[in-house]
Amino acid sequence: MNRLVIGLLTLGLLTGTETAWAQSRKKSGSGSSGAGYQTGLGLRGGGWSSGLTFKHFLSGKNNVAFEGLVTREYAARGARVTLLLEKHKPVSDFKGLQFYYGAGAHVGSYRRYYYYYDGRYGRGKNKRYYTVYRVDEDPYLAAGADLILGLEYKMEDLPFVVGVDYKPFFEVFDGYTGFYNDAALSLRFTF
């Protein structure tokens, strides 16, 4: 991860940053996005998962963006691919600040699945308790639906966007269903 961040920063510095930034601003001014950029690629670090984020604004003046996430799950030893469609609205008093909301879906595969049994047997003084823990190493397919709500800020003189979001999701995993909350911080290089 650290090498990717250093690589993105180096790429920005080595590619003639002033020319690239001017072209990016020119593109976004005459193009389809009021967000100040057309495409962004970067990192997303969250409480449930972290990984890569790619956002691209669709043509037209409606400020709709497609976002793709490829994330690694911390506890589950797996990965997830998420596709989201987001509507962006500028915050009027603060140049470069965008509020956005949207929905999408994901699919993933997880390897580690913890569960336990808690049992009791016997009566009175002979009552006994036991707990059995199990770790299942088989891969399982997971799929679900996602919502997203966030804020992002396009830095005026730099080709970066900083964002924070809240992404609750519903998931079906090996016959079980669950509702999870995820919040994250993102940093994207724009072009």
Rank of each mutant, 00 (worst) to 15 (best):
M1F: 12
L4N: 07
L14Y: 09
E18A: 15
E18M: 04
E18Y: 05
A22I: 06
A22R: 14
K27C: 04
G47D: 12
L52D: 02
K55V: 09
H56L: 05
F57A: 01
S59W: 11
G60T: 05
N63Y: 10
N63F: 09
F66K: 02
E67F: 03
L69E: 11
V70F: 13
Y74L: 13
G78M: 03
R80F: 03
H88A: 02
K89D: 13
K89F: 12
V91T: 10
S92K: 13
L97E: 04
F99T: 09
F99E: 02
Y100T: 02
Y100M: 05
Y100I: 03
A103I: 03
V107R: 05
V107D: 00
S109V: 15
D118V: 08
Y121W: 14
G124W: 00
K125W: 00
V132F: 10
E137M: 06
P139Q: 01
Y140A: 08
G144N: 01
G144Y: 01
D146C: 05
L147S: 09
Y153T: 03
V161G: 00
V161R: 01
V162P: 05
V164H: 03
V172Y: 14
V172C: 10
F173W: 14
F173Q: 15
Y176V: 12
A183N: 08
T190H: 07
